[in-house]
Structure formats: structure tokens, C-alpha cells
Design a protein around this nucleic acid. Structure first.
Lengths: 222, 222
DNA sequence: CGCGTCATTGATGTGCATCAAGTGGTGTGG
DNA sequence: CCACACCACTTGATGCACATCAATGACGCG
């Protein structure tokens, strides 16, 4: 939500966001090829978005949690170009995009907010490209974990404990690794005393070690 | 440029785009950390954009040519988060972003156009993530070449011949490969009779073979 | 012409993929 | 309530694609 709005403006934005939709775990909110109508703000639950090439291979492009926006990919061609799948039961706000455009012509703060959301997504993807293009497995997983806890912490959860909502395979797809490599890398972190892992429950014991991994990209640097 | 505008609207958009700027080969249009003021539309020339992690490693996030827009990364934090570097002498239109926002409140077509440009960039990056996350070297280079000629063709250039404006190292950075691998993969394509390569001059002899490489991601598929 | 930059090619090494076997947790139906 | 099946996960053995290291060659520019 943008800041610095008066009561009437807030009310009008609320109206846009009025419609809710529940998505059961495993169901898709939208799918590649679907007509684009609206953006979706996650109220509760957890999603993955993925793109796929014709030959059936697919790539997780992101994991989204409460407060984050999905569907921006659909604007350019009026059709979605990726799938959004709920990793747990979820609820989203449906925000018809023509209404958003309409309203953001009148409310400057909303207009700028929309621009920032799209820009933020572009910058996030730059980070993923850096990760996929130049990091080793340990660095990738460390960056992934740090990013997740940071976002969870911003939502009031623990800085050091988290429950993964996705499988090793989905993590691997996101990070450009095979599930076995993800599993082995978790095991390595456990050996090194950096994290505790019990199924999908992860406790980070040494945040600094993870940060060092991401930054001091020790080997292979030049 | 958006379509379906009357004379007066076109004039007002023209005014925003009025300021020009020349960039010499090797110079930066903007740099990570610079204050964000404007978007840039390339009139002539060729750019790369790259992000870098603190430790000095960097990743090329894209190559931009005439008609494409740079600077979208700066909106979210009011500062640029990547470098834009001219790979040949270039000229850009400077489009102050507050003017764009102002005008797109009044001209619906412009507003939607801006949204589409940002969405297109998000979708493009999804494609790069798919490439970096799941393709092998030959597939990456094939996809890269096809993408380049397609964009050049849309600008009136040949469908089969192109001059690379970037080094093997820059191609490698973009594709998540080392420059030696890029070079070897070019050599392999030449052996297979798919392309002719003479320094940075590339002639595509068999477009279908490249397309097959990208789609039938033969090995490593599951 | 000589130097620096970019590119090619070969020899070797390694990080991750692949293949395969086995474990543990969960849900289901007899 | 237990047996069974299924799925996610772990772990080991092996192979391969690409990185790394190194030497040489080809432009292009001052």
C-alpha cells in the first residue's frame, strides 16, 4: 500500500481490492496462456511462479508470500506467460488491472507505487540472474535462505527459523540445481554447523557464515 | 511509441523526449548507485547493462539496441542498481521520469505503454532465467543468436547476418559461461555448418538447426 | 611497427548431474 | 490399527560438461 493518502483515496483503493479468491494447495491461480485481467496481492499463503519451454522443462522464477504481487508478466501481451501455483492453501486479492490504471491516473501515489512494484520485480530478477550466472551451489543456497528469512522477518517471523513450503526439487529449479545437489548442500551446511535441518524445518545457527558465503565468493571469482 | 494518438498528444510526448545525449563507446550512461531521474530510449548504438556483487564479480543482464528502454531498475529505490555501458558510440533520448508519470496520467495510451514496457522486461528476464537455470552451453548460445537476429531483423537488418558488438567475455557473462566456452561453442557450430564466424561477424547458415537446439533440449531434459 | 586486446585451441581439473539404492514420514484402505 | 504404497528426501558411486590454466594467433590502434 502506498503511503500518504487521505481517507477518500484509501476507500477507493480498497474498492479495487475488494474481491477475494481462495486457492487450495496445489491449484493454479493463473497459467501460461490465460487471459490477463488482474494483478493479485497475496493475503495469506505461499506461491511459486514458473515458466516452461515447449519441451516440458520448467523453471521456477520465484516464490511469493503474503503482501507480494503476482501477475505483472501478463500486462505486455494481455496473456499470462507463467504459471502461479499455490504451495499451501492461500487467499489473494483480485485487482482488476483496468481499474488500477484508472485509479492510478487520479492518485499520484498509487501510480508511483505501481511503477515501483514493477521496478522492484525487475531488480529482483537481476539478482536471480547474478545468482544463476555466477554462483556456486553453496552460494546459491545461502543466498536463497538469507532472502527467505529476511522476507519472513519483515513479516514478523523469526530471523533464524523457517519452514520451507517448497520441495527440494522446486528449490533446485529456482536455483538452477538438481534436487540431489540441494539436499547435499543442506547436509554440508549441517556438517559445518551453519544450520539445523529437519525435513522442511530449517534453523539458521550462523547467519554470518551464510553471508560470507554469498559475498566472499571465495573460489572461481575471476 | 504508443499508437492511436492525436496530434496534440504526440506533440506533448515529443516534448518529454526532447533532450538528447551522446555516449561514446565504452562510457557509462548510468552506474550502480547513481540517482535515478530519467528513462533512456536508445536512438542509435548498442548497450550492455550489468549488475555486480560487492566482491567485484559482475553479470551482464542484457544487451540493448535502438528503440529499447533503459533505466527501469532505478524507479524502485530512486537510484540505479546496474551499470549501462555503451558498446559503440550511441545516442539516447533522456526522458525525465516525473514528466512521464505526469503525462501518462493524462494520456491513457501512454500509461498503458509504460506498463507494457516494464512487463516486457519482466517477461524477458523470465526467459533469461530459464536459459541460465536449465540450458546447456550450445542451447544458450543458440538462443542468444536467434534472439539477436530476430531483434535486428525487426529493425530492418538481415535475418542471417550480424555483427556482434560485444566480446566473447560479455556474451559469456550474459549466458553464464566462460569466454573460452563461448569460443568453443562457436567453433562447434562452425564445424557443424550451422554458422560462419569471422571475428565478430556471424552468418547464420541454418536457422532451423539453432531452433532445434533451443527447443529439443535433447539431453539432460528430465 | 609494436603493443594491447580479443579470440582460439589444447590439456587438465572439478563441481555438479546422473544413476541408483535406501530411509523416513504420511496417508489410505483392509 | 497395521500393512502397504507413495512421495520427498538422503546418500553413495560414477560420469560429463564446463571451468581453469596455459600457449599461441589475429586484429586494430596509436
Amino acid at each position: 500500500m502506498p503511503m500518504g493518502l487521505d481517507q477518500a483515496e484509501l476507500q477507493r483503493i480498497d474498492d479495487v481490492v475488494a474481491q477475494r479468491k481462495k486457492i487450495a494447495k496445489g491449484d493454479t491461480l493463473f497459467r501460461n496462456g490465460d487471459k490477463f485481467n488482474a494483478l493479485y496481492a497475496i493475503r495469506t499463503g505461499f506461491f511459486k511462479t514458473c515458466v516452461s519451454s515447449e519441451d516440458g522443462r520448467d523453471q521456477v522464477t520465484g516464490f511469493q508470500m503474503a503482501g507480494e504481487i503476482m501477475g505483472l508478466d501478463g500486462i505486455v501481451s494481455d496473456h499470462h506467460t507463467c504459471d502461479a501455483i499455490a504451495l499451501e492453501d492461500a487467499e489473494v486479492c483480485v485487482m482488476p488491472f483496468d481499474r488500477i490504471e484508472e485509479l492510478s491516473r487520479e492518485i499520484n501515489a498509487l501510480q508511483h507505487h505501481v511503477h515501483k512494484i514493477m521496478s522492484r520485480e525487475i531488480v529482483r530478477e537481476h539478482g536471480v540472474m547474478l545468482l544463476l550466472g555466477s554462483m556456486r551451489a553453496e552460494e546459491r543456497l545461502a543466498a536463497f535462505l538469507l532472502n527467505l528469512v529476511q522476507r519472513l522477518h519483515a513479516r514478523g517471523f523469526s530471523q533464524s527459523e523457517l519452514v520451507l513450503r517448497m520441495t527440494r526439487e522446486e528449490i533446485g529449479s529456482y536455483l538452477g540445481l538438481k534436487l540431489e545437489t540441494v539436499s547435499r548442500t543442506f547436509s554440508k551446511f549441517v556438517e559445518d554447523g551453519i544450520v539445523e535441518v529437519k525435513q522442511r524445518h530449517v534453523r539458521i545457527l550462523n547467519t554470518d557464515a551464510l553471508k560470507t558465503l554469498v559475498n566472499n565468493q571465495n573460489c572461481q571469482a575471476h
